[in-house]
Computed example of a mutant assay.
Amino acid sequence: MAWNEPGGGRDPWNNNGGGRRSGGNTPDVDEILKRLKARFGGRDGKGGKGFSGAVLLLLLAIVALWGASGFYMVNEREQAVVLRFGAYSRTEGPGLRWHVPWPFEREEKVNVTEVRESTDRSSMLTEDENIVELELKVQYRVTSAENYLFSVKDPDATLRQATRSAVRQIVGRNTFDFVVIEGRQAVADRARTLLQDILDGYETGLIVMQVNMIDARAPAQVQDAFLDAIKAREDQQRFKNEAESYSNERLPQARGTAARQVSQATGYRDSVVAEAEGDVARFTQLLTEYEKAPKVTRQRMYLDALEDVMSRTGKVLVDASEANPMLYLPLDQLMKNRSDATTDGKTTSSLPSTSSNSSSNDNRLRERERR
């Protein structure tokens, strides 16, 4: 039977009747559920109270849902910036977070670990008034979510424009050959430093990780001439390296040959000087002896000369006492002895001999004596 049917003591909202336990002040759970069911399901003139209660619960549910909408999750790679009435309030890290729901507060999440890329290709003028086409790739990431969202309108577009400005400044201070051939990495490193200074000045909340120069070349209209110039430069360097290699090979050989010839000449000079000094010393000694005993010295010199001559010639002894008209001469033996003597003479002439020199000196003295 419903609580609002006729009958006393069945209205759970009045104090008359068995609305409470007889021994205490705490209502029974079943009784409370029955009262709530009856409250929102009234059938008579008391249904207005049931309607107002339903509206209250509905409002409470809406408020609960509105409050629960303030919960949000921030993953490990992100930072959340909380805005209160559109103005910056705070920055939240990873985890389950809550803020006052809309329209009071809202959050914006920014990935601060992702490495982003920006590619720029443009034509620039070098210091020597040549045009060069460059293609650069910039790798960067966010370091401050607050500055990234509020310092500039579009940080990524700002980075692209700052990259072009920094590279133009560096290219304009260097020659075409340096940018294209010699200093490509140097240009990229300088561009990274200058670009970071510009971004820090704008407080963009970005940090440049790396700047890579993908391509650097002359315009297509002069590409063929540029390739010919590069080839000529490479040929020049190759010829220069070959010449240096030949020079490094020949110079040590020439220096060695020159040193050897100088050494041989020095040795020959020393030997000639020593030989001349020896001849002078022997002549001085011979002159001393000659002054003491001229006849004996001349006789000794004569005998030494004959000994020297006869020792190097073939000899045939003939017994003149026998009157034999037929003389046998061993010509083959004489020729052999002559060839041997000639060979010995060559060998002896190649080596300085003290006896030959003394014999020549004795011969000269003997000739003077005869005169």
Rank of each mutant, 00 (worst) to 15 (best):
R233E: 11
N241R: 15
N147M: 01
I207V: 10
Q210I: 03
A186W: 06
E275M: 00
V208L: 03
V211T: 05
Q261T: 07
Q253E: 04
R184E: 00
E249H: 12
F239R: 08
N147E: 00
Y148T: 02
T163L: 09
P155Y: 04
R184F: 00
I214F: 04
L251C: 04
A259L: 10
D270F: 07
T158K: 06
I214C: 01
Q139V: 09
S144V: 07
S165G: 09
L159I: 10
F176N: 01
Y202H: 06
A276E: 14
E203M: 12
D270T: 10
D270H: 10
V211Y: 01
F150Y: 06
D189L: 04
D215P: 02
I198P: 04
Q261A: 07
I207P: 03
V262Q: 11
G278P: 00
R173H: 11
V222K: 04
R250A: 15
E275Q: 07
N248V: 13
V222M: 10
T143Y: 05
E277M: 05
S144T: 01
N147T: 00
V152R: 01
A254H: 05
V187R: 02
I207M: 06
I181C: 00
F226E: 08
Q161N: 10
F178A: 07
R141H: 15
T266E: 11
V171K: 03
V208H: 03
I214L: 10
Q210N: 15
E182C: 05
V222E: 13
T257A: 15
Q237F: 09
G201E: 13
T257S: 11
